[in-house]
């Protein structure tokens, strides 16, 4: 088997792959940021002692943890436009709606897992921390912002990282609704050239390099921001 990937690195195929790679990164980046924002929001909302809200958030979390990610993407892309008012739907369909829906689906999915990870981190903080924070006059939100969350984030770094890696791999699922990310492009090039082994090998290498990079970055973060408590 003659492995020759040079054809992939230039010209038409090279630009397809580059487009795929950039789309993957863009998808990963936007879903990461949006997901983290939603996760923190969920954590704060669930800390409010209001039962119905907590129950609703619990349902949100359980939905996103028990339904497969690709199904969540399908629900957003095929299902949600149906219930949008007509003019919004038109606006959405005119643009790059696949990317947007994929981002939303991936972000909400990862936010559910991250909210659980951060909440575990919060539970690991000794109760005395909050007491100390309140007794120096910080409000509930301030105590969260300056005392609890920073510590919870440090404790939660390993599971947050693990889920980030899964998010990166899940960007490949967006291909089912036509997002032109890396896996989509490798399939496209395969259909054009039939050099399946070469293009699959290349795509696999790229994913591996990115995964290893994420794991490495994670290791560095863990070392720089270690958990203040043992275990």
């Amino acid at each position: 088997m003659n492995i020759d990937i040079t054809f992939l690195l230039q010209g038409q195929y090279g630009s397809l792959l580059l487009n795929g790679l950039l789309t993957t990164f863009a998808l990963f980046g936007s879903a990461w940021i949006l997901g983290m924002a939603v996760a923190v929001l969920i954590v704060v909302l669930r800390a409010i002692p209001f039962k119905p809200l907590d129950a609703f958030m619990a349902l949100f979390v359980e939905y996103h943890r028990n339904v497969p990610t690709v199904v969540q993407i399908l629900v957003w892309f095929f299902g949600v436009p149906e219930i949008l008012p007509a003019d919004v739907r038109a606006y959405v369909n005119s643009g790059n709606s696949e990317f947007m829906f994929a981002t939303i689906a991936l972000a909400l999915n990862v936010s559910a897992y991250w909210s659980q990870d951060i909440r575990s981190g919060l539970r690991a903080i000794p109760a005395g921390q909050i007491e100390a924070a309140r007794s120096i006059g910080l409000s509930f939100v301030q105590a969260m912002r300056y005392v609890s969350l920073p510590q919870a984030m440090r404790i939660s770094v390993p599971p947050l990282l693990n889920r980030s890696l899964i998010l990166f791999k899940d960007t490949s699922l967006a291909m089912v609704i036509g997002v032109t990310e890396l896996t989509y492009q490798t399939k496209a090039i395969d259909n054009l050239t039939f050099r399946t082994f070469d293009v699959l090998a290349f795509g696999t290498m790229v994913y591996l390099i990115c995964s290893l990079t994420i794991m490495f970055v994670g290791r560095c973060i863990e070392r720089r921001y270690p958990s203040p408590y043992k275990g």
Partner: peptide
Amino acid sequence: RGIPLIMLIF
């Protein structure tokens, strides 16, 4: 664990 399942399936 570093590659998506889709890739493995292909």
